[in-house]
Amino acid sequence: MIATVLSPKVLRAALPALSLLILLVAVWYLNPRAISPLGFNLMFNLAVPIALATVAQMCVITVNDLDLGIGAYVGFVVCVAATWLYDTPLLGIAALIGGIVLYMAVGALIHVRNLPSIVVTLGMSFVWLGLAILVLPTPGGKAPEWLAALMKYKPPAIPIPGWGDLQIPFPIIAAVVIAIVAHVLLMRTSYGSILRGSGGNPKAIERAGWSLLKTKVVMFGAAGFFGMLAGLALIGLTTSAQANVAERYTLLSIAGVILGGGYFVGGRVSPVGAVIGAMTLTLSLPFLTFLKIPPDWQIGAQGAILIVVLALRAIIDRLGPQQ
């Protein structure tokens, strides 16, 4: 029994959740008041867009590519949402759909011409930034009311007899919904396993009669879709838009996928883990602030957290049977 619980496979799967739990306990130790509905709302507010961007990045990593343009793309969505979607919703929707179509086209280009995704998506980051500036040259704009209302939504309290009302913070509900949707689509459908297979063993998938071009286009399209949701969630949280508002999302999303137990190659990803990874990264900032780490070292500390988790995973892997 203990052997099963401590087997590398279980440990590996539990590591992302364990990291988040350890961080939560640490935050509670440093500042008990933070562990409250209000504290959760404040700490995890930005977790929703980051989790969505992380799921987008995970889609691309599933097919063995990397998206270095996701941050700029989220910024583009924010700018479109704050201007066109606010003033002329139809034009805004058309632009957002156009963004997803462009993502699919990039996936097709990378597959057909056998190009390195890092260069193409890095080039695309300039394209998105340029488009965002064209849509909104100076910071400003306004979030559509329904988005702001959605992000400020306060779920009704659940009365628990003999204890009081339980108020589940919206970011937590949103994160659970995102994780379940992504998990079902990628891990529980038959085409989802084809998609993961096209990252794990492309040759086998191709010989079995599936189009690798199609899997790549689908996954890049999914990345565009989740990236769009990330941008919409972000503008709902912030009051005004700016072209480079989500610059850091590129690195955060990659770190989130890796923290969540995703491997960079072989289609081995975990949607639930990715969402947990994004939340861990979000929580690391208040944690570092409570620790009184100066802001200068906060990026470095996030990098260090990433390295520590990867080191733990390497140790777990070494405990297991040699592959």
Binding site: L109, R113, N114, L115, P116, V119, V120, L122, G123, M124, S125, F126, V127, W128, L129, G130, L131, A132, I133, L134, P137
Partner: peptide
């Protein structure tokens, strides 16, 4: 500035598509 970024990105992608 917007058009400059846009053009830079498109030119880089075009050249990489042609060269790589």
């Amino acid at each position: 500035a917007g058009l400059r970024y846009l053009a830079t990105g498109l030119i880089i992608i075009a050249v990489i598509t042609a060269a790589g």
